[in-house]
Design a protein around this nucleic acid. Sequence first.
DNA 1: TATCAACACGAAACCGTTTTCGTTAAACAC
DNA 2: GTGTTTAACGAAAACGGTTTCGTGTTGATA
Lengths: 339, 339
Amino acid sequence: MKSKITLKDIARELEVSISTVSKALKNSEEISRDTKEKVQAFARLYNYKPNNIAISLKNKRTKNIGVVIPDIVHHFFTTVIRGIEKYANAKGYNVIVCLSEESFDKEVINMEMLANGSIDGFIMSLSSETQAKKDFNHLKEVMEQGIPVVLFDRITNEIDCDKVIIDDKLGGYLATKKLIEQGKRKIALITTDDYLSVSKARGQGHRKALIDSGLEVDESRILKLPTMEMDEERIRSFFDSIEFDAVLCVNEIFAVFSMRVALEKGLKIPDDVAVIGFTNGLLSKYANPSLTVVAQHGEKMGEISAQMLIDKVESEKEEETFQTKILEPTLVVRDSTIN
Amino acid sequence: MKSKITLKDIARELEVSISTVSKALKNSEEISRDTKEKVQAFARLYNYKPNNIAISLKNKRTKNIGVVIPDIVHHFFTTVIRGIEKYANAKGYNVIVCLSEESFDKEVINMEMLANGSIDGFIMSLSSETQAKKDFNHLKEVMEQGIPVVLFDRITNEIDCDKVIIDDKLGGYLATKKLIEQGKRKIALITTDDYLSVSKARGQGHRKALIDSGLEVDESRILKLPTMEMDEERIRSFFDSIEFDAVLCVNEIFAVFSMRVALEKGLKIPDDVAVIGFTNGLLSKYANPSLTVVAQHGEKMGEISAQMLIDKVESEKEEETFQTKILEPTLVVRDSTIN
DNA sequence: TATCAACACGAAACCGTTTTCGTTAAACAC
DNA sequence: GTGTTTAACGAAAACGGTTTCGTGTTGATA
């Protein structure tokens, strides 16, 4: 096991000072041709690589970015991570992923853990508990320490920072309009409690589309589950309790499951019941029938988040100007609606 | 913006030395009660947290582990990450995720980037290009530097290190046996080229099951795609070219798509065609009909990998004993087979 | 009163870099 | 021969901690 070689080792071997070695490796003007060649050759030979930690300590930059998300076993978040990773990697940054698992406490602990020098900035999506609790002190604290934060998807208005979201209200609107256009009038909505920012916005869009089309908003056709967790029981009994000819769901799992329930009831998709979900994941593509969805463009979102964060990290200025990027959702039409 | 407070700041403020502050915060016996209380109170008041980077530099431990995987938008890998993250986090470690995107070069670059002090060890699954190329020098190099490596799922025998895999051969065997038990005789196999270690093993298990049951191995019923990428064309024409009453696929996407093709042909599942896939993901659970799969227990795999790695990292001994943990796959029976 | 241990604390080295600011010797001008 | 410039290099501080090894003071002991 040949352990890593340091500047000191090279200096000792070549009988020059550490500073000379450091400068020689950076091709400094100060150092003579001869010495530079000698040092560089030696370094190459022994495969010298500077120690990242030492460099981080010196210039107070880690080239790491922290990503805190509620869940990773979720198509949308993985696409975001992929987008972040791509952009960050191209810029020489590493991505540290932490999972809050929808828990406020874990979110706080993770952030504290990373905020002590491990990272240059945060990209995050709030846990449901945090959104419900409306306690954002952990965010305020890291920002006060001068650590930039970019919030994506699940955001809050109570914190002033860069944000990237999709226009969820528009997404809900587009989806509902689509169903209405197909002649559907009894549109059910399966969503979560309003504390989840995205669900709330999607619900608003849904409502707006109904009203714009002169339709009544029938609250009994709206099922609000406590979280994004699947609850087959409640969805089943919800469908038993209402009349419906279309279903809009805030994720693809609810939607695919709704299709199954509809099929079990002997209903035809999309003629008897049309279904639209959110998240353009594998499930939507390969479900039978395939599912029409509102695509959230996670990868794009990740890229933009990473770009905004790295811009902040690398900008010298102390200006506190924040922006919110709003991406447009798009409808991916498949077989669960009439096309 | 109140920037982070350091030992030096506390020392200056309280007019004691840095060493005294350091010791006081660690509750050292050396320091008097009075001083300790004073220092600790001050530290608490100003929310002092030691700088991780400085500590890393000092004790040459980063408490970061590097995870290099081919892809993150893939249910199996996300479950593994979740397992790793859970265990690692509980042990106070952070997880740096790097994606090779099935590229040899990216794998190498990522590892080199992390190997210079950023992490204490690697957990990785080889990219398909690496497995095809059989070039493992990047692995050898980091191991020579004394950085422990744990390989999971996509491994190689050419490197001596800790490994965690599932018994893919057994998985292929169990699945095929299941199909045979249901009276299926014309079992198709959709897999990838043999360079992918897992596909090869699954294929061997499949073959063994056929032979053990006295059935012929008909090569024309085996489709080997170049990668795990979906190729609807080739799968469609494959099914047009053979007779079959069952399909075994090395992932869930191939399997779900096979079901779609079968349904389109007017075949009944599972009576006319039974289907089994690998990976117990969302797709399998919510497909119509739901898919019987060989579960790979990714989360367990991640946990074990993390445990093995952290054990190595934290063990003082220099012994070079490696172990390979083999997890048993299990069959999750759903509606795509007769139960 | 001289000796000694115990106590409480500080100085300094160290981890591996970068960078500023000398310092030395040769080369040059006058 | 003196003074000045320049090239080439080294010493040392700095980043923020930990840790070893003094060191000065106190009180007890012989």
